[in-house]
Design a protein around this nucleic acid. Structure first.
Lengths: 186, 186
DNA sequence: TGCCGGTGTTAGCGGTCGCTAACACGGCAG
DNA sequence: CTGCCGTGTTAGCGACCGCTAACACCGGCA
């Protein structure tokens, strides 16, 4: 049953986001889905493998979704708006995954970390190329730094619970595009 | 000797930033400063106390520094630029502390966490009031959301190692102020 | 000189953690 | 009906971790 796996992954993401990978025990994860401790090993080969699957799957989703949205746009400016909208929507929909994604990357096994890093790099590359296409004359390094800064801005969502979802979506959208516009001018 | 304490705090910050609080052992921290394991207890009463001191001290530094810089400015717009510059400089100077600050807050003892949260709230309040003074008509909730988003933008520094320090400082400055300007217009 | 406080060492305790072993039980196929 | 596979249980092992105990060394001071 794949539903159980997904349920476990979701529960584990919440716990990892709150206490960190090493701060959560096998028994905690089991209890969160109503089973107890070692039953998890019927679905995942190890705790490390669970984290690995969580992070590779979210990295794939980001890369695929971002690539698709950017490719479907008709102008570079529109592509950039689409990327911002996509990242914002993703961060608002999966705040726990976003948190774990940037926090516990260092706790992955070497093979998993390498794969996640590669996927991340490719996702950033989509942003870099879109930024350079939208704003002529921006160096690759600058575009990359801008991309990381905008990720930070949008991924602040988990700490941002003062506005409701549509308002926050709109606000992050405006902030992100405003930041990028300001740099293009300079 | 207080120099040893500071040395330990700095080494522990680097380790916590890389592996998370629970991913670092007492022996690891000791080894990083050339002593071994339990000698730490000559300087700190517990591992929890070490983290507590680390996070309360950084929270105090942020609050005091930010308040001073904002108060010394002559106009709200200048105060906001000062806050952005201060946060940028802090994040670039102490990337490990920034990382631990937002990642391991949940691993503090209740009393420490309460104190850190209070200091953080007051620091955010400085930003909120400055934003509202600089841009008339922005609601408190919106200003707070903007502040958190700008923190995320600036604190992306640890993932941002493609530009040298002065360039990155300038870039983050422009991005942050551009983001805020865009929201004021809307 | 002799003591003493500050700082370091190693040995080891109690608890926790990831994981395995051994077993139980229900649903479905032959 | 029987046997098996998927999924759950509890008991417990071995390793690790935070921390304490007991002891050692050194520098300054009566």
């Amino acid at each position: 049953m794949t539903a159980r796996r997904d349920e476990i992954l979701a529960a584990a993401a919440e716990l990892f986001a709150r206490h960190g990978f090493h701060g959560v025990g096998i028994d905690d994860i089991g209890a969160a889905v109503g089973i107890s401790g070692p039953a998890l090993y019927r679905h995942f080969s190890s705790k490390d493998a669970l984290l690995g699957e969580m992070l590779t799957s979210i990295s794939k989703d980001l890369l695929e979704g971002g690539s698709a949205r950017a490719a479907a746009a008709e102008t570079p400016a529109e592509a950039l708006r689409e990327l911002v909208a996509f990242q914002t929507d993703f961060a608002l929909t999966h705040p726990a995954l976003i948190t774990v994604h940037e926090r516990d990357l260092g706790n992955l096994r070497d093979a998993d970390r390498h794969e996640v890093r590669t996927l991340q790099r490719r996702y950033v590359e989509v942003w870099v190329q879109t930024i350079q296409a939208a704003y002529a004359g921006v160096s690759e390094e600058r575009a990359r730094a801008c991309a990381h800064a905008v990720f930070g801005l949008i991924n602040s969502t988990p700490h941002n619970r003062y506005l409701d979802k549509p308002e926050l979506t709109r606000l992050l959208h405006d902030l992100a595009l405003g930041a990028l516009d300001a740099v293009a001018v300079a």
